[in-house]
Design a protein around this nucleic acid. Structure first.
Length: 207
DNA sequence: CCCTGATTCGC
DNA sequence: GCGAATCAGG
């Protein structure tokens, strides 16, 4: 595949939209994300945010090394300490909506229930927005995620699926988030946000 | 481990 | 010009 006019156009468009190189590559097909990035650079539309007098890192300038042998990997200090995930077990009380419906059971419910009101029985269910005060942002995010969650079952959980439990395990209104995990963590980004939040909120956004 | 973009360099 | 390999950060 070569960089035809159209393809370049798509590239520009998507890059402008903030799409990732891999996404663009996938869209275009026949190219890898490296190709996309390479092209992006050649087109001169790489980095966008450049304050005045931007410090040009370039870093390892005069490498003068024909043999890119860079051994000796300084390992990051092994840290091992995280908050513990919410528990799933625990029998809970009945908490669900009344079934005013009498007709057919939802074989493939297309209509998401509007309001979900979870009233913990009083036992440590997941860090629900009860007394705890988590980032309002994080909570909002979670609420949103729960709508779009994949709602998978226990047996569908994998290392890549968010294992955040939703609903009441004692009822059939229970599922796991199932979205893509936030690498490393057992939850998706949104749930990681409410799962681990020892202290200060995150504070960084730069590069 | 996954993913991102950035850079280098042989082709 | 192209893009795989590599690097560096999240």
């Amino acid at each position: 595949m070569s960089w035809t006019d159209e393809r370049v156009e798509v590239l520009k468009k998507m890059w402008g939209e903030g799409q990732s190189a891999s996404q663009i590559a996938k869209e275009l097909g026949g190219v890898t994300r490296n190709a996309v990035i390479g092209k992006v650079h050649r087109l001169g539309l790489s980095n966008r945010a450049s304050p005045a007098g931007a410090a040009k890192p370039a870093a390892t300038e005069a490498k003068a090394e024909a043999k890119p042998k860079a051994p000796a990997k300084p390992k990051s200090p092994p840290k091992k300490a995280e908050a513990e995930p919410p528990k799933v077990e625990e029998e809970a009380a009945e908490v669900q909506e009344p079934r005013t419906e009498s007709a057919s059971p939802p074989a493939q419910p297309k209509v998401p229930h509007a309001r979900r009101q979870i009233i913990p029985a009083g036992q440590p269910l997941p860090p629900q927005p009860s007394a705890n005060e988590i980032s309002p942002e994080a909570l909002a995010k979670v609420n949103e995620v729960e709508k779009t969650a994949k709602k998978i079952s226990l047996m569908e959980l994998t290392e890549k699926t968010c294992k955040w439990p939703v609903g009441d395990p004692a009822t059939d209104q229970f599922w796991f988030c199932g979205l893509n995990v936030q690498q490393g963590k057992p939850y998706c980004e949104a749930h990681v946000g409410v799962a681990f939040q020892p202290m200060s909120s995150r504070r960084d956004r730069r590069r």
